[in-house]
Structure formats: C-alpha cells, structure tokens
Design a protein around this nucleic acid. Sequence first.
DNA 1: TAAGTTTACTAAACCGGTTTAGTTGATTGA
DNA 2: TCAATCAACTAAACCGGTTTAGTAAACTTA
Lengths: 334, 334
Amino acid sequence: MAKVKLIDVARFAGVSKSTASQYLNGRFDYMSKETQERIRAAVAELDYVPNPIARNLKATKTKTIGVVVRDITGFYSSRVIRGVDDYCKENSYNALIYNTDFDPEIEAKSIEALYQLRVDGIIIASSGNNTQLISEYIGKGMPIVHFQIENDGSEQNIILSDYKKAAFDATEYLINLGHERICFVTQDIKNVNSRIERYQGYADALSKHDIPLDDNLVQQWDRETGFQTAPTEIVESYAPTAFFTQHLPITIELLRGLNRANISVPDDVSLLGFDEVPMAEFFKVPITVVKQEPYSIGVEAAKLLLNNIAEETNISHKILIPCSLEIRDSCKAV
Amino acid sequence: MAKVKLIDVARFAGVSKSTASQYLNGRFDYMSKETQERIRAAVAELDYVPNPIARNLKATKTKTIGVVVRDITGFYSSRVIRGVDDYCKENSYNALIYNTDFDPEIEAKSIEALYQLRVDGIIIASSGNNTQLISEYIGKGMPIVHFQIENDGSEQNIILSDYKKAAFDATEYLINLGHERICFVTQDIKNVNSRIERYQGYADALSKHDIPLDDNLVQQWDRETGFQTAPTEIVESYAPTAFFTQHLPITIELLRGLNRANISVPDDVSLLGFDEVPMAEFFKVPITVVKQEPYSIGVEAAKLLLNNIAEETNISHKILIPCSLEIRDSCKAV
DNA sequence: TAAGTTTACTAAACCGGTTTAGTTGATTGA
DNA sequence: TCAATCAACTAAACCGGTTTAGTAAACTTA
C-alpha cells in the first residue's frame, strides 16, 4: 500500500522535508510560487497520502472522541450517535463508538481503552456504576459529557431531555381537552431523576389548573410484574378519562390491555405516551406521544464536548433539550 | 494528561528503553525475574499507559477497520455493526463507523478518509455508485468486504442473506399448510439481485410441488405509488389464500388494506412477510416472518475481513447467511 | 583452557511526520 | 557602506514507541 512518504515527495520536488511539510500544512509564508508548484506536482505525481498516525504523534490532539453507549442498536442510542457523528464530521473530528451491552465492566474497559487511544474527550451514557472511575479520568483532564444518565449528579457536563417540561406540556394538553382524571403510569420512581421530573411536570400541570392530585391515578408498572393494578380495574375503580404512560413498553402493554377489554381508544379513554412508538402510523389508532430528540441530544453533546476540548475548560453544563408533542389520534376531548 | 513515557519507566526501573519495551510486549525470552519485576513495579508506580499512536507508527497494521453503512440508525445496519464490532473486539480490532446517509459522494469521501487513516480493511454497504473507486482501492491492496449490496458483481468478497433459500422455505411452509394460491408481493424487481433471488425461491418451491405459477399472483408495490393492484381487488379477482410479502413496508401496507376491508388474517387469508416486523409481538395478530440475521452478517463480514487481512489474500468469497422462519399467528392451514 | 554458546541486556536506527533554530543571499536603511 | 532586515529555504531535534544489531559476562564443551 501507500509507500510514498514525505521524504520522497521532498526529493522529487528538490526541496527539504521541512519545506514539503510546510507546504502540506498550508504555511506558504515565505515560499516561492515555483517551489509550491513543484511540491504540488510531486504530490500529484507520486500519489502521496500523508500518514495521520505520524502526524498525530507530534500533535497533542488526536481529533478523535469516544462515544460509549449501551447498545448501538437501540432507537435512542443510534440516533444520538448519528447526531454526534454528524457534528464531529463537520468539525473534522472522528467518533469512535463503543458498546457496553449494559455491562458496567465493559463500560469501564471501554473508558480505559479510549483513554489509551488518547481520545480528546468522551461522550457517555453511563450505567452509574463507574462514577468513581469516571471522576478519576475527569481528574486526569479528560473532558467527559454525559447523556441518557439516570441519576445525574451535580458536577457534570450533561445533556438531557427536558422531562419536566415535556410532562407538564403533555398533561396540560390533556387538560385542555377537558381531561381531569389523568392516570399517570410510570416505572417504579425510586430515586431515578428522569422519572421524578416527569412526575413533577404532571403534578405541576394539575396544580396549575387546580385539579387535585389523586394518588389512585399514579400507577406503577414493572417490566417483570407488569401493572400494579390491571388496566381494566383502574378504569372501573378510578374512572380516568385519559392515560399518560411514561415509557414505551407501558404504552404498548396498556394498549393491549385496553384492546382486550374492549375499552376503545380514544372513544372510551384517551392515551398519550412518552417516547415515540415505532410503527405508530400503521397502528389502528395512531398514538399521540411525547417525542424525545435523541439526534439533537447527540449534536448538543458533541458541541459541548468539542467546545470543552477547544477551550480546555471543563466547567459543568447541564443542557436540557426540549421534547415535542406528536399529536395523532389517540386523544379526544371529553 | 498521561505524560509518563517509556523512557521514564526505563529510567525508574534502571533499565534501557529496549528492555522496557520488550517487557511490555511480553517478550521475556532472556529477561531475569528481577528485571521483570522492577519494570512491572515502575509501570505500576508511574501509572504508565503506552501510546498506541507511537506504537502504530512502526507497525504496518493499524488494527483498525472501517465500516461504511448507509444509516447507523437503521434496524438492519445497526445490527450488522454490532456483529462487526463484537467480532472485532474479540480480536483486538477497532471498528470505525462511517455513515453515508445514502449519498454516494459521502460514500466516496468515507472510503478515502478510511484509506488515509490506514485502516487495515473496509466493510461496506455500497450504493453501487462507487464501484470504480472501490476497485481502485482493492487494486491498491485494501481488503474490502461487501454486505447489503443490491447488485453483487462476481469478483468480490460479499456477505448476503440466502434470499433464494429463504423464499423457497417460506413458500414451502405455506404450501405445506395447504396453500396453492400464494400471492408474491415485491418491489419492482428490475435487475436487483436480492429481489430476483427471492422470486426464484418462490417459483422453485411452487414448481417442486407442481403448482402452476400464476402471473396474476406476482404483484408489485412501490414506495410512492403503493400497490399496483389494491389488496381487496387482488383477493376478489385472483382468490389467493396467502400473501408472501417481500419487504416490511409492503407487509405493513397490506395488513392495513386487509384490516380496512375486513379481510381477516389469518382466517380469510394467511400472511407471511420477509423481514422482521418491529413490535410484531404486540400486534393483534402477530405476523409470521422470514427473519434475516444482520448480526450474523456483521460477524461473518468481520471474520472474512480479518482473515483476509491476516492472510494477506483477497480471493473472492461469497457467503450466504441463512434466514430463519419466525412462526407466529398469521398463517393458517386451508 | 581456549573457543563457542547462552543469557541478559543496551545503543542506535527507525517509523513518518512536525517544528524549532538556523543559514544564506538579497534588499533596505542611515 | 556596513549593519539590520527579510525572503526562502534547510538541518536536526523531536514525538514515543519498536526492532535490529551488538556487547559483555557467565557458562559449556572439546
């Protein structure tokens, strides 16, 4: 493969390595037109391609960042990567993608590998099990930006969806359709920030419109055990006129439950889901959802990271990306 | 960041750079236990991390390959990447992912960029618009493996789904359920190999079971114009007992058409689709499909490429990955 | 016991560039 | 007219490793 090196070009053009190097880096300060032309011709003639590895050896920056995600395959992650990648490309950066497969150990290894590769910075959807390690690397001067993290500490660079506002807006949309008994279905809230914020958005919207918060209408769902209370039972006992589901699997499960019980959406009850429903447009009743913007999250993460790299600062920024309401046919005025 | 270099380790351990380097590369042939121990201690004490850039400068191989896909975000592409990436990781290779966004120009640029980066090889889902350029790079000695290509020439390394066999098996599955009038719905066949092969599989299965091929039952569908003949009309005019759709959008569209016309699947007509239907398990009638194995395709592509790199050969291999029939509820015996 | 091997290392060249500190000849200024 | 400035280069050090050729001392072997 490409055997031609700088010295060959220099010799061919009858100049020194240094001059050839200057030319290739666009520093024509004190270089005659003829010399430039001779080097240009030599490069063309010999089909010379500079070796970026040798280049990087001298340079401090590698013009490469790492992206650590849980699964490239995922709807959310893949779009974040696209955003990061597109922004990087515009800025002559390269993104190396690492997959953790939800395994904190692989996550740790990925971070170490990226450090060894001398990436200029890292964008990561961390599991939360490597905070120690990550702090260490930040301490060593590695710029790091988080996204899709469940529990954001305070001292970090982080890009997240504006969960609270999104939940607030969605709830208010339902209220404006005349709904007062809105059932909020979520995964176990625990201490997970992203869930707490959604709940607060919901509660704030109710409060703003003087609608009392009924605890019976705050329902939990779990991947293993399913609904705490069956959908039909919720409908019979607490008479919600709308459901506001916080995660895709819940949206889907609820829809099935209602279908099975012949409770019609949106005639008997409205349904609004958090997170886009794949193929929603092909559903019998296309579902209205709150859409996150993973692509934008990726772009913003890259923007923040490249900025921190350039400025050599690492002051904490927390950037919230707005979500948008995708209105389809599953919500009806009461 | 990491300022400690090999010379520091060597000095700290009281040995030469060369000896330290030998140690780090596991060549203990003629090295005393004490020396090894002293270097080990020095590395630990100084927290030394080798610089792979400097390493690569000397090495011919960069231990990096490029993957050029149309869209990382896609169901198929992302899974291929996962396969490639996992196999690479197992073999201490790194995969650089490039996105072309379906643009032949970006595709060309990506290939050039990867060449400049001195990747050891490339895995690509090429658009077919850069055959010239790709041949050039192959000529320069760059190992290249194709996948997801629409028109495979003969002189290439290529990994594809075994379309013909998959279509044959699926058709035969329907025949064994008693279907004889199976409507084959495809995108415009043109000269696209992957479509031709599916059609042949279908035709072969019919022929094997002495079922005449009825041209009325071979229908075309187009992303813009939709069905050539409306599903209801097909059912009324040609009385198929089953549909075998060749692409996800067709499967979905057909399903909608049938639903709208109150033609029940699978009671009135069976439906078998090529390509997995996302969320199929949540559908009213989960759909039986032929599943491609993009992850395996990725693994095989990486395997072939790394092998070609190691062996320094580039003899053409065409590897067909079997598909599998995912039997769900949309096909019924007549 | 002299020559040949082995062991355990090291010096220096090398990878392919970038950058710094000169060098040389021509031009300018007082 | 002689030093100072400038244009147009170049030599050599450097980036941080790997590798080759070589060396000194200890150990065999005839």
